[in-house]
């Protein structure tokens, strides 16, 4: 199997996040413990996902792997977005396409 092109990878990101209805309100970032440690989570990351910004996301692998999966953001999100599931998905995306830890 050939590796997916960048466009296919972008489509994969979009296909996953378009199901969520993020309204970009920032409530999640207000409650997340990581911004206090200068880590840009999670609204920023979700926005990049929505925009299919593959390279920008890869540059933020550090933030993506810093998420605690604590679900406090999800608990308070007014739009019911499964934020930790998006983060887990992005980790999988990086593990496949960047770290090559699993099959692409």
């Amino acid at each position: 199997m050939t590796a997916p092109t960048m466009i296919e990878q972008r489509d994969e990101l979009l296909a996953f996040t378009n199901n969520g209805g993020c309204i970009n309100c920032g409530t999640c970032t207000a409650v997340c413990p990581l911004p206090k440690e200068n880590v840009m989570l999670p609204r920023h990351i979700l926005r990049l996902m929505h925009l299919g910004q593959r390279e920008e996301l890869i540059a933020r692998a550090d933030a993506i792997f810093s998420c605690l999966l604590c679900r406090l953001c999800e608990e308070t999100c007014p739009a019911g977005v499964s934020i930790p599931e998006c983060v887990r998905y992005l980790r999988g995306f990086m593990n496949r396409h960047l770290h090559h830890l699993e099959k692409e």
Binding site: P33, L34, K36, E37, V39, F65, S66, C67, L68, L69, C70, L72
Partner: peptide, 18 residues
Amino acid sequence: LCCGGPIESLFPARAKAI
């Protein structure tokens, strides 16, 4: 509120602060 434990191995300094 999370104790920081889940990232203790990968990001010990952040985990400590949390």
